[in-house]
């Protein structure tokens, strides 16, 4: 992929505010997501990470400036933003439980030539369960469906919200593998509590505290600084966070 300018960020967020039912949940957030690799969005629970992702997508009321590869998307409705190549893997999966796995995937296909082989090779388990209702799958399998829905199209950016939440350690590794694979195809903005996963995948981190950005920089710089990890994320070390 050859972008116009190599170091132009794929996503740039400036002074983003988000509201749910009149309540401010995102306050003056600004950061960039580089055009390659994984950027992790971190912060304590309830700090507004999920709301930030939703504001970017227009799933909640927002004001501010959001650019995708230089173009404003902060006025566009959600489906138009997604059509421009922003895929979303929500917190808690949000698969359609009454639909089969195949139907979940078919619904997500928006490209003329969806990448079904890629999805099949990434998630062989799902191939075997194509006709099963997604609601009857395990949490890990549902996460696979949710990831597969995003990866079946060619994307310019992936927004992935807490993909390993509530999963068994073995499944966490599988999800992380899939994300590493996905990161080769498109840049990722990742919300993740598990710092081991963050260390493995992310090059850069953005840390939110009370709705605002308090740190941006290389992932190692933060993760190696136990004092700041403790202060920003409220945990002592990676093992505890995992």
């Amino acid at each position: 992929m050859s972008g116009p300018v190599a170091d132009e960020p794929i996503l740039s967020v400036r002074n983003l505010y988000g509201r749910i039912a009149g309540q401010q949940v995102v306050e003056d957030v600004s950061f960039d997501v580089p055009a390659t690799g994984v950027t992790a969005l971190l912060g304590r629970n309830g700090v507004g990470k999920t709301s930030t992702i939703k504001s970017i997508l227009g799933l909640i009321d927002r004001t501010g400036e959001v650019r995708l590869a230089g173009e404003r998307i902060d006025r566009a409705p959600t489906h138009r933003i997604v059509q421009r190549g922003v895929a979303y893997v929500p917190e808690d999966r949000e698969v359609f439980g009454s639909l089969t796995v195949a139907e979940n995937l078919r619904l997500a296909e928006r490209d003329r030539s969806p990448r079904r082989e890629l999805v099949a090779s990434l998630f062989p388990d799902l191939e075997a369960r194509r006709e099963q209702r997604a609601g009857t799958l395990s949490g890990g399998q549902q996460q696979m469906v949710s990831l597969a829905r995003a990866l079946v199209n060619e994307n310019r950016l992936l927004l992935v919200d807490e993909p390993t939440k509530g999963l068994a350690p073995r499944i966490v590794d599988e999800v992380a593998d899939a994300l590493a694979e996905a990161a080769r195809t498109a840049p990722i903005l990742l919300v993740e509590q598990n710092l081991l996963v963050v260390r493995r995948l992310a090059e850069r981190v953005v840390v939110l505290s009370s709705g605002r950005v308090v740190f941006t920089g290389p992932a190692e710089e933060l993760l190696d600084d136990h004092d700041r990890v403790q202060r920003f994320l409220g945990v002592h070390d990676e093992r505890e966070a995992a």
Partner: peptide, 12 residues
């Protein structure tokens, strides 16, 4: 089942 997620898959 989930109207918002349908929009989030790029469907009007």
């Amino acid at each position: 089942e989930n109207r918002h997620m349908v929009t989030a898959l790029g469907i009007d």
